[in-house]
Design a protein around this nucleic acid. Sequence first.
DNA 1: CGGATTTGTAACAATTATGAAACATTTATG
DNA 2: CATAAATGTTTCATAATTGTTACAAATCCG
Lengths: 235, 235
Amino acid sequence: MNIMVTEKILIVDDEETLCEVLKLNLENEGYDVDIAFSAEQALTLDLREYSLILLDIMMGEISGIKMAKMLKADIKTSHIPIIFCTAKDTEDDMIMGLNLGADDYIMKPYTVRNVIARVKSVLRRTSGSKPVNASAEKPEILQIEGLQLDLEFKRCLVDGAEIKLTKKEFELLAYLISHRGKICSREQILAKVWSNEVVVLDRTIDVNITRLRTKIGKYGSYIVTRSGFGYGFSY
Amino acid sequence: MNIMVTEKILIVDDEETLCEVLKLNLENEGYDVDIAFSAEQALTLDLREYSLILLDIMMGEISGIKMAKMLKADIKTSHIPIIFCTAKDTEDDMIMGLNLGADDYIMKPYTVRNVIARVKSVLRRTSGSKPVNASAEKPEILQIEGLQLDLEFKRCLVDGAEIKLTKKEFELLAYLISHRGKICSREQILAKVWSNEVVVLDRTIDVNITRLRTKIGKYGSYIVTRSGFGYGFSY
DNA sequence: CGGATTTGTAACAATTATGAAACATTTATG
DNA sequence: CATAAATGTTTCATAATTGTTACAAATCCG
């Protein structure tokens, strides 16, 4: 047996009995299984630690579809494979057409055997794709509402959509956000973001601020100017 | 009798009686036999441990053909010989034309004696071709969907087809994949992949990235460039 | 208010990074 | 040794980034 961390699976479904049956069977296969009876409940968990999410499309207030969108829009969870569970009469095309990045989907009523097979299949496909210490890792993600900065992958999501930031823009934004609530002088910004590489004018910052503001859309107004002092990221 | 691990054989067929008969007879010959009544069920097993798979072509949802393709496409199982069982009227050419790497095939209705003979024959041909500790071995395989990197055999499969990667290409890809989700600076890449052997230019990485991208086909776009930062393997 | 100062913005210029291809060199292999 | 394969380098074209400037707009402060 190789050294491996147990794969954690989350089941999100409002049918309690079904959940229990699946949980038992999956645990029997060696997986670590958690259950959430609603999307709301699921969202209270630290979803990063799951290797796979089994998601019922038809649920209460937040539908499975909405939840899937949220998962895919959140940089911390967007890589987690999702298997949709759908009622039998749901149109095939609908699911696929949703373009939600579902890795698989299963029709109800499904057999336990079938579910396990799908789970294994998906996990086999995506094995090695999760962070090494998913649950213990320092996130390295800055997030302000719908504005997300992945400091490792150097990318920025605005309400779920990736925004291309240049290196300087990215570093500038990261600097401001990580000093949220403080006004940073141009000197400080130059020192940290521009390092001591080359000598650039103060005004360079201003221009980059402008570019940043437009790129991050509605969050642009979070970058505030304090005349005579510098810039900051507001609460 | 020499020291040998019992050879495990998997029968995948939906005719229960037939399976049992075969199982009894093969066990009588000293083999260890498991049965799966469908491809789905078979896929829940750890297939690596089998020395041979007897596969019925005509089955339920996942046909035997599809399953064989999956087996051959998965680097963990691609070495396992498969004997196809076909209905009598199946065209010979069809089987061979499938180019599935079947090691043999048998027409139904077949005699038990016949099956055993084929099994022995195939196992004789392929003996020594399986991993030493097939079931206990640490896989050491990186897999992203249809892209598979066998770190031990130093080979790469793209959707089941072997792709020849040079040493540097292989190591570079392995490095990127094992740091999936992070952007690796050229410095980091040089340090790890090029070690401190020789001094090479940054641009060497770029060129190897390009070569890699074209070689791994559609997965090439998984290798992302973050201008000014470096390269990374995306989710 | 009104001039001085600071900041926003757009356009431009300069620089740098990257991809692709071709070429050169080194290394493996028989 | 000869050949092929692998690897590194150079070059060119292009794309992307970054910095500067000029001017408009906003802000500051008497």
